[in-house]
Design a protein around this nucleic acid. Structure first.
Lengths: 231, 231
DNA sequence: ACCTGAACACCGTTCAAGT
DNA sequence: ACCTGAACACCGTTCAAGT
């Protein structure tokens, strides 16, 4: 074997701190988007940032912590602009938040599975809940009803997201355009026309409707029930 | 080494069909309940039913198929009794279905994660959707609104379940009693009193309330919005 | 403190082989 | 058709060691 010069320049252990928590989360998110929930592995992240697998444990205690941080960062990217604007009608503000959350999270479909697995109890998650409670208090709901209403709204938004992403079955990549999703859902069902006529008909009826419109329809029915007077 | 008699009685490959699909699902469910979502592995299932890991592939093509079958069986166990009773008021029937689904699924908390990952498009899932659409049609909703309402109800129920189970953070075992869950949720938050006063207050306000009551409150607000006349 | 190689105890899945 | 052992390409995590 010839004299190996590269052996001396080869990466040696030692403090370098070329990485940051953000770098790791960036890598995790990229893997998530490219390869689905399973692709965001510690080993995959390490490979992507060019480091040994166990080096990740210098930045996060375990994989759950990475996932939590990822979800938190995602929630932190939610734009509070219109939601926080007190000059807007409260329904417009709630709708804006609902749409922001939906677009932010469904931009990374695989993250929804992580969301459901985790606690969603980090600072950014709590901040969102806090702002929502403030708004509901402004509307005139007494604390107990505001609490119940916030829970209901959260559950509905959460569930809609899960239904939307269920379409993918964990397949990697971004969500296809809404029209395509609606068409696919319908096509899958047509085989079942005999046994589930109403389900198929329902897919037909709302076929022209993008799923965001269905999402907003339900949201407003819930709001109707919560504050019927239309304060 | 002495003469090994057991070597001849040792299990040999060959057709025996001592197993059934049901046996495999039973094992998967038991592992799920005992050890959480990760415990329901192909290898774990195989070990529990006393077979080599790859023998499972005689019954199911892959792990996803096992999970799908598990979810389908869970939905098949939902009791349609009161929900199917036409003599009952429609709200009572919807509530009965909502409670049945909730109790059935939260009896196996780890299954919720599987539910979110999968399609929930099997025969039993479609049957539930079909019956719900029938009922909404009986109430007098036109097809398009019935479709939207079914979607909204499904999303809400789904999301509530996810929130309920998020409490566990994937820890194995059954859900603790509701009172305990409410107390734990509150205890976790008290550390944050300064930054999230309303969120903490909300946890206090509804602390005496079991989460099923919160679930039903939201359900009825949604129903109020869907059919305000109270038909 | 930050990183390494090596190892441990796992995964899902495939393949060739036995009955 | 149903099962086996062995293997492949993965996991998350830990440990001892290097700088």
């Amino acid at each position: 074997v010839e004299h190996d010069v590269t052996a001396q320049t080869r990466v040696r252990p030692g403090p370098r701190r070329t990485l940051s928590e953000e770098d790791i989360l960036d890598a995790a998110m990229a893997l998530l988007d490219e390869g689905g929930a399973n692709a965001a592995s510690i080993r995959g992240i390490a490979a992507r940032v060019g480091v040994a697998p166990n080096a990740v444990y210098t930045y996060f205690p375990n994989k759950a912590a990475v996932v939590d941080a990822l979800v938190e960062r995602l929630l932190g990217d939610v734009d509070h602009g219109m939601f926080a604007d007190p000059t807007q009608p409260w329904r417009v503000r709630v709708e804006a938040l609902a749409l922001e959350l939906r677009s932010q999270i469904s931009a990374h479909p695989a993250a929804v599975q992580l969301l459901v697995g985790g606690q969603v109890g980090g600072p950014n998650a709590l901040t969102l809940n806090e702002r929502l409670l403030e708004l509901l208090a402004e509307v005139g709901l007494e604390p107990a009803d505001a609490a119940r209403a916030a829970y209901a709204l959260l559950a509905y938004g959460f569930g809609s997201l899960a239904l939307e992403v269920a379409y993918l079955r964990g397949a990697p990549g971004p969500l296809p355009p809404e029209a395509e999703r609606v068409a696919t859902r319908r096509a899958r069902l047509t085989a079942e026309t005999g046994r589930f006529p109403r389900t198929v008909a329902a897919a037909d009826t709302v076929a022209g409707e993008i799923s965001t419109d269905q999402y907003l329809w339900g949201l407003h029915r819930l709001l109707d029930g919560i504050a019927p007077a239309g304060a």
